[in-house]
Amino acid sequence: MPIKIDRRRLLHGLSGLAATSVLSGCASAGASSGEPRTNVVRYQGQSGDVVYHELAADLGLLDGVELEWIGNTTSGPQDIQATVTGDTDIGGAFNGAIIRLAAAGAPIKAVVGYYGSDVRTYGGYYALDRSPIRGPRDFIDAKVGVNTLGAHFEDVLAIYLERGGLTEEEIDSVQLVVVPPVSAEQALRSGQLDISALSDIQREKAVAHGGLRPVFSDTDMLGPFTAGCLVMRDEFIARNPDTTSRLVAGIAQAVRWAQTRPHEEVVARYTDIIRRRGRNEDTDSVSYWRSTGIAGAGGLIEDREFSTWLRRLTASGRVPPGSVDLRKLYTNEFNPFRAGAPN
């Protein structure tokens, strides 16, 4: 069943959670500052999917860095919060969520892009064929299903509505409803939602069933773009510069491998990895893989992939002006595909 969320209350709660995470992260960093350097990197995976560190390990690209899987993440915000608190050493989320956490004081740095949108891989906002919703003003008072709050689908929707001329009050009238991705199509077809944000396997299955039409997509708004990055704690990077360099270089090379290899080869490799790791997972999802969606070669990060969201979050009052310095928020220092990197 969908979970109806009060948007203002939820955003306030997210701010509190971010603050808690920052405080916990600072305590963890202080406690671990005297620990020896390590070549073991803890991370969360994704059920039925392969994250790029896992692909890098399988391709033999991690140069002695060992991965320790501690379980699967439930969302991007949860994944990076686990990194801030020191439960993991690397995590990934939508760039807008990273900005929110950084604005709360989280000592993190984005090191490589890991997902995005292009003509083959994108997030779409879908209505039933018979729905009267056709444009931005039709979203007023509508119920829109998203997978989580404070992340990709919410911020893209806000840009769409702002460009459509809606006031802040009219945008706030849109009811965001948290729906597990596997339930999003059914919630839309049953009338519990007016619009459902769909991507990847859920989008392709829903469209194949018929009766739906896209209202707009994230690429309609922004073109191809890297939407999310992997982050690490500042103290982990400072204490383990060699491990960080080898890890990020391996991930970047794995991203580039997926960007340049034939579709069938990537799907076959992902399927094989999932089967061999023995986590009792279904491999159906990876058969719907279409592309990395990542704009930069090897996950290189550009200013615009953060500045787009920072401008909106600052203008809407969700992030205090001057609280986030993009020059400190991300780095391509460890990416072998950056300009001037040694061959």
Rank of each mutant, 00 (worst) to 15 (best):
A249S: 12
I251F: 05
M232W: 11
R246W: 08
V248G: 06
R239W: 00
R246L: 10
R261S: 08
I251C: 06
A258P: 12
I251W: 07
L230Y: 07
L230R: 01
E235G: 03
C229D: 08
I274E: 10
D272E: 13
A238C: 01
E265A: 15
I273R: 14
V231Y: 06
D242G: 12
I273H: 14
A252M: 02
P224T: 13
A254D: 05
A238M: 03
R269Q: 11
G223A: 14
R256H: 15
T244N: 13
P224C: 12
R256L: 00
A268Y: 09
M232N: 03
A258G: 13
T260Y: 06
S245P: 02
F225Y: 12
M232A: 08
D234E: 06
L230K: 10
T260H: 01
S245C: 07
G223V: 12
L230E: 12
S245K: 07
H263C: 07
P262Q: 10
R246I: 10
R275Q: 04
G223F: 09
A249F: 02
L230T: 06
P224N: 13
E235Q: 11
G223N: 03
S245D: 13
L230W: 13
M232C: 06
T260N: 04
D272Y: 07
H263L: 15
E264I: 00
R239A: 14
F225P: 00
T260K: 03
Q253W: 06
V255Q: 01
T244R: 07
F225N: 10
Q259V: 08
L222C: 13
A249L: 04
F236I: 00
V231A: 01
A268K: 15
E264T: 05
Y270K: 14
P241S: 14
E264P: 01
M232F: 08
R256T: 03
S245M: 01
Q259S: 08
A249P: 05
I274L: 15
L247A: 01
A268E: 08
V266L: 04
R246D: 09
F225G: 03
I237Y: 03
I251H: 05
I274P: 05
I237C: 01
A238N: 11
R239M: 02
E264L: 05
W257G: 03
V267D: 06
T271R: 09
R269N: 07
E265G: 00
D234Q: 08
Y270R: 06
D242M: 12
R269H: 12
A238Q: 15
A252K: 05
L230H: 05
W257S: 10
A252F: 02
A252Q: 03
I251S: 11
F236S: 02
E264M: 00
R233L: 01
T271D: 13
E265I: 10
A252W: 02
F225L: 12
T260W: 09
A227H: 04
A258R: 04
Q259N: 07
A252N: 07
T226Q: 09
A227E: 01
R261Y: 01
A268L: 11
R233I: 00
A238H: 14
A249M: 09
A238Y: 08
T243M: 00
F236T: 04
T260V: 06
D242T: 15
V248Q: 04
D272K: 15
D234T: 04
W257V: 02
E235K: 11
V231N: 05
H263F: 07
V255E: 00
I237S: 02
V231I: 07
P241A: 10
T226K: 09
V255W: 09
A258Q: 06
P241C: 12
A252E: 12
